[in-house]
């Protein structure tokens, strides 16, 4: 059962995320994928995450497909103009990729090639519209395609935006994304269930599917770093304390993630696990969470 079918079935969805390496060494990545295969409904492959140049999302998605995993192609607006975006989408389709997550993308100045030209010809909303148009058999310019894809498009939302204005804008943009064709949303990492619950209340009327983000916390230091530097991520102090005082960081991390997943089960339609290097531990998290 592919991701789209799983979503339609109404089951509690599980996705995970892997980031390609800088280079051509892909054995480890495939090993990780192999390990979580069957335990998740789909695996996202990031698109030059944090604007760091690396192996592309499309190639890895294609490899996952070959392994029998349903991949979600992450596609950002940072590096491609509207020609390249449309062309890459068609390429992805013919390589068997069915799910696309449309993102704006980080700015190049944050990555390892800060001098790069930031493209942003389209934004995430218009990219979603383009995907819809391709699905209908037309390109952006209105030209008919010879053979059309049928992508299952998704988007992201940041429910932890830390000002009321920012959150309000996230919600407005989320609505625009739904209008532009997004069928599912994967969120930024959630550590505060009350906050997330309030967010879900606010989007109650939206007819869409939300997969709450789960980040595997590796240490208190990582939590503090994210609180300071990662937009929309806020690890509450008790959780940081928990990581600080534990003797077995891995175990605590897994327990914490499982606890959050259990909480999310009552709030949204799935979870999206960002293991950030601890992909091998995803099965343990799921097991702990009873999934």
């Amino acid at each position: 059962m592919g991701f789209r079918e799983a979503l339609d079935s109404g089951k509690f969805l599980i996705t995970a995320e892997i980031g390609p390496v800088k280079g051509t060494e892909i054995d480890g990545l495939l090993e990780d994928a192999e390990l979580i295969k069957g335990k998740v409904d789909a695996i996202n492959v990031t698109d030059l995450q944090s604007s760091v140049m690396r192996l592309g999302s499309m190639a890895v998605c294609h490899l996952l497909k070959d392994l029998g995993i349903d991949p979600i192609l992450q596609l950002t607006c940072r590096d491609r103009n509207r020609l390249a975006l449309q062309s890459d989408l068609l390429s992805a389709w013919v390589l068997g990729i069915r799910n696309v997550l449309a993102l704006t993308g980080d700015h190049p100045t944050l990555g390892d090639h800060p001098q790069a030209m930031p493209v942003f010809d389209l934004d995430s909303v218009s990219l979603l519209k383009v995907i819809g148009r391709l699905n209908e058999g037309f390109d952006m310019a209105g030209n008919q395609l010879k053979g059309a894809p049928d992508f299952f498009p998704g988007a992201v939302v940041n429910p932890g935006a830390n000002t009321e204005t920012a959150l309000e804008m996230q919600i407005i943009k989320m609505e625009k994304k739904i209008e532009a064709g997004a069928r599912f949303f994967q969120t930024q990492g959630i550590f505060d269930l009350d906050l997330f619950e309030r967010f879900m209340k606010r989007i109650e009327g939206f007819k869409t599917t939300v997969l709450g983000g789960i980040i595997l916390l590796k240490s208190a230091g990582m939590a503090r770093f994210m609180n300071k530097n990662v937009a929309g991520v806020f690890v509450p102090e008790p959780l940081i304390k928990e990581m600080e005082t534990t003797k077995d960081k891995v175990k605590t991390s897994i327990e914490m993630a499982a606890r959050l997943i259990k909480g999310l089960k009552n709030l949204c339609q799935g979870v999206h696990i960002m293991a950030i290097g601890w992909e091998k531990r995803i099965p343990m998290v799921l097991e702990e969470a009873g999934l």
Partner: peptide, 17 residues
């Protein structure tokens, strides 16, 4: 990023990423 449909998710505390 010259976005015209609202902010990206990168702003923090009202500041640009």
């Amino acid at each position: 990023k010259s976005l015209i449909n609202g902010p990206c998710g990168g702003s923090q505390g009202g500041l640009c990423e």
